[in-house]
């Protein structure tokens, strides 16, 4: 059985003057340990889809099942990482990374130790007692990663977590996140607008169409690429071929819009 099953979900937004069909008929199954990327034209509803998987947003119709249980509200089993770190500036790093545990009522000596251990793994152990304003953007995003992992979720939802970082930091962090996720055998869904990031990190790439979004096409990343770290993967010929394919496909949306 797949870890995550998305079954015929639709989402429609209402306002006083308009009805917007954001997502229409999406079906997807994500296997345990898989890394999926979701790409698509801007404004197509990628984040909406992610919010529904997390349980923060209810689909208009259709079901989403995690481990066979239907998701109706946020569960401890999923972790969510946003475009920016959104660390709480008034809490020290230690309090920030244990925020999830505390909110769920799971904060014990043991779980706090685990969180601090993760912080050490990210090379930030010495910063546990400082406040977020004293860290750089890349460090803060790593802390946000620890905050998400500390509650030991099964499914990680990453909403363009690298988009606010400079290029060098982004490349390093991609490697770090990739290896951390593989090491901890987590399942992850990454929303991104960056084709190379999607190829470098994932096992499958799901391309959504323009609004109302449906799955336009699913690309399988070749096994030869999957084994590589994101940074190495970027330097291979296979990478470039896949990049071209996806690029052309995305471009075709643009043409349809302008013509």
């Amino acid at each position: 059985m797949a870890l995550l099953e998305i079954n015929k979900i639709e989402k429609t937004y209402f306002s006083k003057t308009s009805v917007t069909e954001a997502i229409k008929d999406i079906n997807l199954a994500v296997e345990r340990g898989e890394f999926i990327s979701i790409i698509g034209p801007s404004g197509c509803g990628k984040t909406t889809l992610l919010s529904m998987i997390s349980g923060l947003l209810k689909p208009t119709s259709g079901t989403i099942k995690l481990d066979g249980k239907q998701i109706t509200k946020p569960t401890p089993e999923t972790g969510y990482m946003l475009q920016q770190d959104y660390l709480f500036p008034w809490l020290s790093i230690r309090r920030n990374i244990t925020l999830g545990l505390k909110t769920m009522g799971l904060l014990t000596k043991e779980t706090e130790c685990h969180a601090l251990h993760l912080l050490n793994e990210m090379g930030l152990g010495e910063f546990k007692d400082v406040y977020p304003s004293q860290l750089s953007g890349g460090m803060r995003q790593r802390v946000a990663l620890v905050r998400m992992l500390a509650t030991q979720p099964k499914l990680l939802l990453l909403d363009e977590p690298f988009s606010a970082l400079d290029f060098q930091t982004k490349l390093k962090l991609e490697d770090l996140v990739h290896s951390t996720i593989k090491e901890h055998e987590k399942t992850a869904i990454l929303v991104t607008h960056d084709i190379s990031e999607a190829i470098a990190m994932s096992d499958r790439i799901v391309m959504l169409s323009r609004r109302p979004a449906t799955i336009h096409r699913i690309f399988k990343v070749p096994d030869a690429l999957k084994g590589l770290e994101p940074f190495e993967a970027r330097n291979t010929a296979l990478f470039n071929d896949l990049f071209q394919d996806i690029w052309e496909e995305l471009e075709s949306f643009e043409h349809k819009r302008t013509s």
Partner: peptide, 28 residues
């Protein structure tokens, strides 16, 4: 910022908890 609330809600916080751990301290 709605996103701070999103962070705490993704950990399953109730409205009451979101208020006391996000809204109030953010407004100090």
């Amino acid at each position: 910022d709605e996103n701070y609330v999103k962070v705490i809600r993704s950990f399953g916080a109730t409205k009451r908890k979101s208020f006391f751990s996000v809204i109030l301290p953010a407004c100090f």
